[in-house]
Design a protein around this nucleic acid. Sequence first.
DNA 1: CTTTAGCTGTTAAAGATTTCACAACCAATA
DNA 2: TATTGGTTGTGAAATCTTTAACAGCTAAAG
Lengths: 218, 218
Amino acid sequence: MVCEVMDGSNLRSMILASEKTIERLTIYHFILRELHESRVSAIYSKDLAKLAHVKPSQVRRDLMVTGYAGNTRNGYDVVQLQAAIDEFFNFKDGIKTILFGAGTLGRALLTYFYPLKPKYEILAVFDKDKNKIGRVLSGTRIYPVEEFSRVISGKNVKTGILAVPAQEAQITANLMVDQGIRGILNFAPARLLVPPSVFVEDMNLRATLEKVAWFADK
Amino acid sequence: MVCEVMDGSNLRSMILASEKTIERLTIYHFILRELHESRVSAIYSKDLAKLAHVKPSQVRRDLMVTGYAGNTRNGYDVVQLQAAIDEFFNFKDGIKTILFGAGTLGRALLTYFYPLKPKYEILAVFDKDKNKIGRVLSGTRIYPVEEFSRVISGKNVKTGILAVPAQEAQITANLMVDQGIRGILNFAPARLLVPPSVFVEDMNLRATLEKVAWFADK
DNA sequence: CTTTAGCTGTTAAAGATTTCACAACCAATA
DNA sequence: TATTGGTTGTGAAATCTTTAACAGCTAAAG
């Protein structure tokens, strides 16, 4: 997938950002946060490349899409570059999401994202199990699936996490799409059929383990 | 990454399988299992493609590496193709792995893989927390990290799952590599430095959510 | 002031992956 | 037997991604 995006720094050019580039930008973003916490104020492409396990030229090329330019003497200013990527992603307000499925995996995800508030926030969990309704896990309340529409209305939630059993995945995805969700992080071991305007990222743990096992065998 | 592999059906040719192809083969493998359970005996590349969300020509090209040939009348025999992929991956004996970290995520992974036994099996969990030692979760016993070497000796374990906090990720990865682990499924939000012969697949949930959020925004 | 060293941004080449396009095939049918 | 319709396997083209190469810049040193 290739997306055309406006160059942030000026309007004269359209720049292409591939899915691969987007993926690496999130990694750089992540690394920059750590660098900032370690009081590093500037970094060269070759060092950022080493941390991200890519080539320096790859880093420089990727950063082009953000419109931020480093300088030849100190490389990239950590804070400014972080801000540029933030702006490119339009993440200034953080990422609000909702979760379907309060099973073991769902609960693990809640625990995982809890300390990342308020930048990343799971606003609500939805589950079919009546016994779970109303409970609060890691600061997030469990609602019945029927209340999905009501709970998210006006919240401008664009992304959702799917952690329900495989046989319920498609019907739940339909529900999400109907309510305006445009990006789905799918942990259910099922391929979802969604309109082309909706982005699905599959996290199929079984398939991924198989891949790792293959490469482990050389 | 590109790997040269022997063509399974005969020895005259070397065929190239890219990482992407390997990824998709695991997906096909997965889909074939479901088809088989649904009593489907044969499938055309165009239908398999639809289920896997790829193009038919992609399916046909990918399947070339397994050496299995369909036939022009019925397409691919589900059982035979499944067997061919199994043979290609060399997964007849299933996948044995070990897990580092019995936190929330680790426990979720144990629950996730439990019903997939004996094909996929987490043989042991290792954790630093002395209070957890000896407990059995989803049929898997928790051991102290110090016993890692002893517990896996002779078991020919080649893959490991890393679900420890970021700050312990590298040191734990070193431990795994020292004991002969060749493939790591890494859930820790940290980039691991390992020898080139070791394959690392990162599952950085935060970065992946950012990616989904980006594409959700169009 | 001029040179040097070492960086960035970017163009172009190289490399990898996906898709197209079509010959060869096969069973059903006329 | 010949034709038809719909498939596979695969070479070659198209597309996408990564890497190399280098002009241009800047601060420091001579």
